[in-house]
Amino acid sequence: MMTDSDVAISMFERIGGSATIDRLVERFYERMDTLPEAKVIRAMHADDLGLIRDVLKRYLTEWTGGPRLYSVEKGHPRLRQRHIGFAIGDGERDAWLTCMRGAPEETVADAAARQDLDKALSGLADWMRNR
């Protein structure tokens, strides 16, 4: 017989679900738009961030263990392949992480979940380097 402690709680649930993902992505792109150290990655994006905001929300929802909102529409993420046209080195990774690290600090209340999310995002960002 399974007990509640046998069921793993997804990162999606730990950080607060869809509402938190929405706020996190909004803060991420606000930081990208305003932080001087984010200029290098902001320049890689379209002027209008509306579409990419929605894509990132769907991706992060699924990536953190929430509903499958990304792959049903876009297929396998293939993140490196989708980003191959962009030169992503240490500077770009660090700029992205600066924006992404600040967002959970402002949106995820659970410190342990925030730390685990940061570790996972750091690994993802490091893996995306192609230069």
Rank of each mutant, 00 (worst) to 15 (best):
residue 87 A to G: 12
residue 65 G to Y: 00
residue 116 D to A: 13
residue 86 F to C: 02
residue 80 R to W: 00
residue 62 E to T: 08
residue 56 L to K: 11
residue 4 D to E: 15
residue 23 R to T: 13
residue 27 R to K: 15
residue 7 V to N: 09
residue 94 D to F: 07
residue 48 D to L: 12
residue 21 I to T: 02
residue 73 E to T: 10
residue 112 A to I: 10
residue 46 A to E: 15
residue 49 L to T: 15
residue 87 A to F: 03
residue 57 K to H: 04
residue 105 E to D: 12
residue 84 I to G: 05
residue 100 M to Y: 00
residue 38 A to T: 14
residue 114 R to F: 00
residue 62 E to P: 06
residue 114 R to G: 03
residue 46 A to I: 09
residue 38 A to C: 15
residue 125 A to P: 07
residue 96 W to H: 07
residue 61 T to G: 10
residue 63 W to R: 12
residue 50 G to K: 06
residue 57 K to V: 09
residue 93 R to C: 06
residue 115 Q to C: 08
residue 10 S to W: 03
residue 57 K to D: 01
residue 76 H to G: 08
residue 126 D to S: 12
residue 54 D to E: 14
residue 103 A to C: 03
residue 107 T to S: 09
residue 63 W to H: 12
residue 69 L to V: 01
residue 58 R to Q: 08
residue 9 I to W: 01
residue 3 T to H: 13
residue 42 R to F: 01
residue 65 G to K: 08
residue 68 R to F: 00
residue 123 G to Y: 00
residue 114 R to D: 00
residue 71 S to M: 10
residue 15 I to M: 14
residue 9 I to D: 06
residue 74 K to Y: 11
residue 27 R to P: 01
residue 19 A to E: 13
residue 47 D to L: 14
residue 28 F to H: 10
residue 99 C to T: 09
residue 23 R to P: 04
residue 24 L to E: 06
residue 41 I to W: 00
residue 41 I to H: 01
residue 24 L to P: 05
residue 46 A to G: 15
residue 5 S to D: 14
residue 15 I to Q: 09
residue 107 T to K: 09
residue 21 I to V: 13
residue 14 R to I: 03
residue 19 A to P: 09
residue 108 V to A: 05
residue 18 S to D: 10
residue 67 P to E: 07
residue 1 M to F: 14
residue 54 D to H: 13
residue 16 G to T: 04
residue 23 R to D: 09
residue 35 L to T: 08
residue 129 R to F: 00
residue 8 A to R: 14
residue 42 R to I: 06
residue 116 D to Y: 05
residue 67 P to I: 02
residue 73 E to A: 11
residue 2 M to E: 14
